[in-house]
Deep mutational scan, measured.
Amino acid sequence: NQASVVANQLIPINVALTLVMMRSEVVTPVGIPAEDIPRLVSMQVNRAVPLGTTLMPDMVKGYA
C-alpha cells in the first residue's frame, strides 16, 4: 500500500509547510503520495489541517 502525507501537527492556513509538519502513513482514502513531501515544503494549505489529517491535493495551494 502506498503511504500518504499526513499532518504531524495542526497546520495553520497561510503558513509555509516544513518537513516537521508532515509524516508518511498508509491511510484510507489515499492522499498526496509520501514521495511528494519534498515538493510540498514551502507550499501552503488553503484551510487549517488538524493533526492526523491526510493531506489531499485540493488542500495545498499550487499542488494540483
Score class of each variant (00 low, 15 high):
N1R: 10
N1Y: 14
Q2P: 13
Q2C: 06
Q2A: 09
Q2T: 14
Q2E: 15
Q2Y: 13
Q2D: 10
Q2F: 11
A3F: 09
A3I: 09
A3H: 11
A3S: 11
A3T: 08
S4G: 04
S4H: 01
S4Y: 03
S4M: 02
S4P: 01
V5H: 02
V5K: 01
V6Y: 02
V6S: 02
A7E: 02
A7D: 01
A7V: 07
N8M: 07
N8E: 07
N8A: 09
N8K: 10
Q9I: 09
Q9C: 07
Q9E: 14
Q9D: 10
Q9Y: 09
L10Y: 11
I11A: 01
I11Y: 01
I11T: 00
I11F: 02
P12L: 05
P12C: 05
P12E: 14
I13M: 13
I13P: 12
I13G: 09
I13E: 15
I13S: 14
N14L: 05
N14A: 06
N14T: 06
N14R: 07
N14P: 00
V15G: 10
V15C: 06
A16C: 07
L17Q: 00
L17V: 04
L17W: 02
L17C: 02
T18Y: 03
T18R: 15
T18G: 07
T18W: 03
T18M: 08
T18Q: 14
L19Q: 12
L19W: 10
L19C: 06
L19P: 14
L19E: 13
L19S: 09
V20C: 06
V20T: 13
V20H: 11
V20K: 12
V20R: 15
M21H: 08
M21R: 02
M21P: 00
M22H: 01
M22T: 00
M22N: 00
R23A: 09
R23V: 07
R23S: 09
R23E: 04
R23K: 11
S24L: 05
S24A: 14
E25C: 05
E25F: 05
E25K: 13
V26E: 10
V26M: 14
V26Y: 12
V26F: 15
V27R: 15
V27L: 04
V27H: 03
V27S: 05
V27W: 02
T28W: 12
T28D: 11
T28C: 08
P29I: 05
P29H: 06
P29M: 04
P29E: 07
P29C: 04
V30L: 12
V30Y: 10
V30E: 10
V30C: 05
G31S: 01
G31F: 03
G31R: 02
G31W: 02
G31Q: 03
I32M: 03
I32T: 03
I32W: 02
P33C: 05
A34R: 05
A34E: 07
A34F: 06
A34V: 07
E35I: 12
E35V: 06
E35P: 09
E35H: 12
D36I: 09
D36G: 05
I37Q: 04
I37V: 07
I37K: 05
I37S: 04
I37P: 01
I37Y: 02
P38T: 13
P38L: 10
R39F: 09
R39Y: 09
R39S: 10
R39T: 12
L40N: 00
L40V: 05
V41H: 04
V41P: 02
V41C: 05
V41F: 05
S42N: 12
S42M: 11
S42F: 10
S42E: 10
S42T: 12
S42L: 07
M43W: 06
M43D: 03
M43R: 08
Q44W: 05
Q44L: 10
Q44E: 14
Q44A: 09
Q44M: 12
V45P: 03
V45W: 03
V45T: 10
R47P: 03
A48W: 15
A48N: 10
A48I: 12
A48P: 14
V49I: 12
V49E: 02
V49S: 02
P50W: 04
P50I: 05
P50G: 07
P50N: 08
P50F: 06
P50Y: 08
L51K: 15
G52Q: 04
G52M: 04
T53H: 14
T53Q: 14
T53A: 15
T53F: 09
T53G: 11
T54S: 04
T54Q: 03
T54E: 01
T54D: 01
T54W: 03
T54Y: 03
T54A: 05
L55T: 02
L55V: 09
L55S: 00
M56D: 04
M56K: 10
M56Y: 12
P57N: 05
P57Y: 07
P57V: 06
P57E: 06
D58L: 06
D58E: 14
D58R: 10
D58G: 10
D58V: 10
M59N: 06
M59S: 05
M59W: 11
M59T: 05
M59G: 03
V60W: 02
V60H: 01
V60K: 01
V60R: 00
K61R: 15
K61P: 08
K61V: 11
K61C: 06
K61D: 13
K61H: 15
G62R: 07
G62N: 11
G62D: 14
G62E: 13
Y63N: 04
Y63M: 06
Y63E: 03
A64D: 15
A64N: 13
A64S: 13
A64V: 15
A64R: 04
